[in-house]
Write a protein that binds this DNA or RNA. Structure first.
Lengths: 412, 412
DNA sequence: CGCTATTTGTTCAGCGATTGAATTATTTGC
DNA sequence: GCAAATAATTCAATCGCTGAACAAATAGCG
């Protein structure tokens, strides 16, 4: 999701204003301090007159507000700083995962204004029932958002599986879902959002993708190209290139869990052999550490591992080192291929990062030709749990920033 | 290099025309038959009046020309078809490789209008001397181009190695180059091109990247996202995503030759272990087939292999099968990661495709989770040798199509 | 042959958005 | 208290798109 305007088709007279609205608003969103109209004029290359006109539209639409006297030095009339409004449009983020449901609301600024998590084992629950429960939570979220002056303009749902363009969940193995028509199931419930031109009412996407988007938009802003790895039962990755999520031809990119790291190794349930998941997936690590999986609820497995590693347990340390090495082989492949300089460990990996990072870095150092000239950073995610839900909500809010014209054109 | 306009900064009054010039010209370039002004209006969403005005500019700048009566059926005034001009701006492509120098000229249409290849072992030649020789060839190319009514507006140089943003060749191992400042060396020679706003005078890029661009712009147009693998002494890949080359954060993407396909395998000169290059590089295949490399000039090694395989030589067939399997493991990683549906085998691999494709496809089928739903195509490159030079020249010519305003604004 | 329907391409007044210069507003420094 | 400096607004001019009317050119039909 680039912040620079990029018209797809004809550039009409009115597109001009649309593009400049996006340009100016994007600048306000990414500035590290509230810019004045004059700042925006020099930053964008537009004239002050144009910026004033554009800002007037944005103020009228309540997308930005004027902040009180901005700190300045020197003579001259003081500038009025412009900031994104903390009221107005907001995004709804939804997440179905193996052991929890999550709902959150993120505003234009990117802040989480509402958050609900419902812990439960979702594997035995029918998809329709899980979604119904989610809608219920979302209803409460909307009411809470309204109390803060926020209007939900779109929703994004994160699922740990493969999703096609139409929102059909083709396969979510760890959840036991197959060919679940999410949009159709959700359409049976009363709509929770106010439709705005240019913002899809519902986007269904892979959990790893949305978590990566969350990382992209987190504060402080990080790099615009990176790999975000979600290490859960399965291992997924979100690839962010130049500030935009790369989804692949059919939206199924990031299947890093099935990169062959030991081509003649253990058979994987995907049909292949020696997939990363067999060596660095949650179950593999737990087993290698000598823990009995049945005694560990999924959401406590990584916590228990971290506990043992912290205490110096030899089995746990070895298991983590081996997993990190396997992960490092896969990451080295990605870095060689895409020339990324940042890798973020998210999901269950975030808590295990202190033990995973060293072997991953070692493999990168040994296997990446260009690592000698420019080092690769490997760090844990800054977002906590439910990162995908936050990323989902943020992706909706970002869309308003990227295409404000739709919101401004609404009748209200 | 997208054909849809995408302004980076301010959208000023004049940008409107710039964007629509690019939009209309891009449409003319990609249409499969010469479109009329009316066709363009419906295709772009602009009014016929605007299209007429835009086309008038393009005709005046000699970027397009009217083709004689286009075949039509039915009543009505006959349309006048519009085609890209076969005169006017053209791109200069240069290539330095291990055993040849190549120069070519490609016009707006994408056709190769001039081509010179100088075969010689470049390893013992100093970079400055190699480039001087290339400039000499380019001078002849420019004169030949001028006779066809073509003006060179930019140059691109393909090098088998890592190039940074400034055009510095950091490392070209098989050529023996290290830290060669190509732009500075070329600046000592008289300029060969006419500077046009928006078109860089010289771009230096990796051979695999430019070969991929050549494939992207080849006729008939193929997919807009694919992986192009150049199998020479080293193995490089160009990644094309949504019609644009993906260069990575520092321009060093595509180092597929060093993907670990056997993490504990043979040591590689990159410092890693079990890199693809050790199993599917030209030297590895030649050695596995029982051929003595010293007796084979580099440019005949693949031809000899193909000959033997054609004749049913067991050693050659086994060597190719093993190489294809290793290649397949790497390709499976890429496809899992990027969800591409097309893989093009270029360079030395093109001639060996009949024997490489089956094992590559077998590995993909076994290791790619999504292959069951949508098959992956693996095919040889349509461009012949010196694909990188052609791609280089084409990338310059394409830039004029993508940003015609610069050419139109020139004083001439 | 002449008329009509049809499609292509051009002309032109109107209009929206940006521009650049002039103007007003507000503060600091002397 | 006044000049300098910076911020923001106002306004006529201009650029380029729009929509509708108009001119051009052909096929079909009687």
């Amino acid at each position: 999701m680039s912040l620079t305007p990029a018209p797809a088709g004809a550039v009409r007279q009115g597109s001009l204003r649309e593009l400049n609205l996006a340009l100016v608003l994007g600048r306000i969103a990414t500035a590290d301090r509230p810019p004045s109209r004059a700042d925006l004029a020099t930053a964008t290359g537009l004239t002050r007159a144009t910026v004033s006109a554009v800002v007037e539209d944005l103020l009228a639409g309540r997308l930005v507000s004027e902040s009180d006297p901005a700190p300045r030095s020197g003579a001259g009339r003081p500038a009025r700083g412009l900031v994104l409004a903390d009221q107005g449009p907001a995004g709804l983020g939804l997440e179905v995962n193996v052991d929890y449901l999550a709902v959150c609301v993120v505003d234009l600024v990117g802040q989480v204004r509402h958050r609900t998590v419902h812990r439960a084992d979702l594997r035995p629950v029918a998809p329709a029932d899980a979604l119904a429960r989610l809608v219920e939570m979302a209803g409460a979220a909307r009411e809470d958002a309204a109390r803060h002056g926020l209007t939900l303009v779109g929703a994004a749902l994160a699922v740990p599986g493969l999703v096609d363009d139409a929102g059909l969940v083709r396969l979510a193995p760890n959840l036991g879902w197959r060919d679940v028509p999410v949009p159709a199931l959700l359409a049976e419930h009363p709509p929770l959002i106010e439709q705005v031109p240019g913002v899809p009412a519902l986007v269904v996407d892979n959990e790893a993708n949305l978590a990566a988007l969350g990382e992209l938009h987190s504060q402080p802003p990080g790099p615009s190209s990176f790999l975000h790895i979600s290490g859960e039962v399965g291992i997924g990755a979100g690839i962010v290139l130049d500030g935009a999520l790369f989804r692949g031809v059919r939206g199924w990119s990031g299947e890093i869990g099935h990169l062959p790291v030991r081509p003649d190794g253990r058979p994987c349930r995907c049909g292949g052999q020696g997939c990363l998941e067999q060596y660095a997936g949650q179950e593999a690590i737990v087993a290698a550490a000598g823990l009995v999986r049945a005694e560990l609820p999924a959401d406590t497995a990584t916590a228990r591992l971290a506990e043992l590693a912290e205490a110096g347990d030899a089995d746990a340390l070895r298991a983590l080192h081996d997993a990190g090495t396997a992960l490092g082989v896969a990451v080295a492949s990605v870095v060689n291929l895409l020339d990324l300089d940042t890798v973020v460990l998210g999901g269950g990996y975030a808590a295990l990062a202190p033990w995973l990072c060293p072997p991953v870095l070692a493999e990168i150092g040994a296997r990446v030709l260009t690592a000698a000239w420019s080092p690769v950073t490997v760090r844990p995610s800054t977002l906590g749990a439910e990162a995908a839900a936050v990323g989902a909500a943020g992706s909706v809010a970002r869309r308003i920033v990227a295409q404000p014209a739709g919101w401004l054109a609404r009748p209200g």
